[in-house]
Design a protein around this nucleic acid. Structure first.
Lengths: 230, 230
DNA sequence: TGTACATCAGTGAACGCGCGTTCACTGATGTAC
DNA sequence: TGTACATCAGTGAACGCGCGTTCACTGATGTAC
């Protein structure tokens, strides 16, 4: 609850929209669920009456969607930024997964809202966008010969491994987890080995020496391993 | 909505409790969420007035918990049953994962309620019970030399891989998924290879010939591969 | 065999709450003449 | 420079709904004497 907001001058009414989004995001994080987020509370925090919210959002659903999708933009910015300097495609893929996981753990409420509940509307939009990032990163690994097979299929498995890790951390906070960062790294390491091997061994295993060489290459690129100090 | 229920004879009042549970389960599955499940609807389907529900359940939360935990018993029964005839520990572990995944896909609403949302109360109970099954199966693989490391740590990764797969299928039904059964098998295959390798390669890789032999052994035990027809 | 009575399994009506949303309105601001 | 007016950015009060839950009650059943 806030002191009453000063009325905007004509032409600056759109500033309220941004403030509503910010207040709604705060309250969503504090409340933990969409159900705990009310139009009255949002208006109250901004310092405005409830109907004023409807000046900028058609209904509650539209507001919630805008709040959740806003933070999602940040994910893609962080992904691009963190991968920018990495030339090795396998390392870049691992970095993508790590950024994705930490993003989810940093924004558990929005992640749950968008990724952990079904929704009739354009919910898949967010999932689809993140998914494409992963597909591209996997495709580069396939081009480099580090993985084999259909990039989309491989990505499904890798994505679900990372998602599984963070969604369990989010949904089961009382479970006796180890350190989340370590768990994420371990999950990515395991998924990386798994994808590399499973994609190489649909039928007969490759010649032993080539396999060992490939594994050495992968191992050197796993998270938590300094390339300068193997 | 049902015709009015005939009054139970003294001593048989407890039968109503079972009927309430059944009706609540049906409505929960039809509605898709706990929020869509109302005490009035439950009472209506059983053919009784709303306050009668409070004769057997303290409040709505207690009822929902009873409904969700009831189906969970079925999971453990199915797990034990399906693993009964399997002597190979790695194969048994894979079968555990497959049963778990198919259970989740068969009861998506209950799975989401117990595993995909946070809850202040004894929510971890269900997770902890399933988890212990997996830990035991992993521990047998470690004893047999197929996996290495702490069973609990290994299980976290395997569990989150399977959970990630099914929870995405449940939460993102509009996503263009491939066949769920195949996706589950592929996830288990990938997690199996990943766990085997990641647990064997914390530092230097093992001698090449022993590694290749180990991988051959694992490959023969992967889902979808008939042992009589490799 | 008949009757008073305790008990069990419910009923009927209502309370109180908080929610999303609507609708007629108001008052300050800038603009045209 | 002064004044009428359109517009923009909100306000205040209320509607209507559905929910979980409570509370005083009722009426059939079995039992004791």
């Amino acid at each position: 609850v806030q002191t009453r907001r000063v009325r905007a001058r004509p032409g600056e009414g759109a500033r309220l929209r941004a403030d509503i989004l910010t207040a709604a995001e705060q309250l969503l994080v504090e409340g933990g669920t969409v159900e705990a987020l009310t139009m009255r509370a949002i208006a109250g925090r901004v310092g405005v009456t409830t109907p004023s919210v409807y000046l900028h959002f058609a209904d509650k659903q539209a507001l919630v969607r805008a709040v959740c999708l806003r933070v999602w933009d940040d994910l893609h910015a962080r992904m691009q930024e963190s991968v920018a300097g990495i030339t090795d495609p396998f390392r870049a893929l691992g970095q993508c997964g790590r950024v994705y996981a930490h993003f989810a753990l940093d924004h558990p409420v929005q992640y749950r809202e968008l990724m952990m509940r079904p929704g009739p509307d354009g919910r898949p939009a967010a999932a689809e966008r993140s998914f494409r990032y992963f597909v591209d990163a996997v495709a580069r690994c396939v081009s480099a010969g580090l993985l084999r097979g259909d990039p989309r299929e491989l990505t499904l498995s890798l994505w679900s491994a990372v998602h599984g890790c963070v969604s369990l951390l989010i949904a089961q906070p009382d479970f006796p987890w180890p350190d989340p960062d370590r768990l994420v790294d371990e999950t990515i390491r395991l998924a990386g080995y798994g994808a590399a091997l499973a994609s190489r061994m649909p039928g007969a295993p490759p010649p032993t020496d080539r396999l060992a060489t490939a594994l050495d290459e992968l191992t050197a690129r796993m998270p938590g391993r300094d390339p300068a100090n193997p």
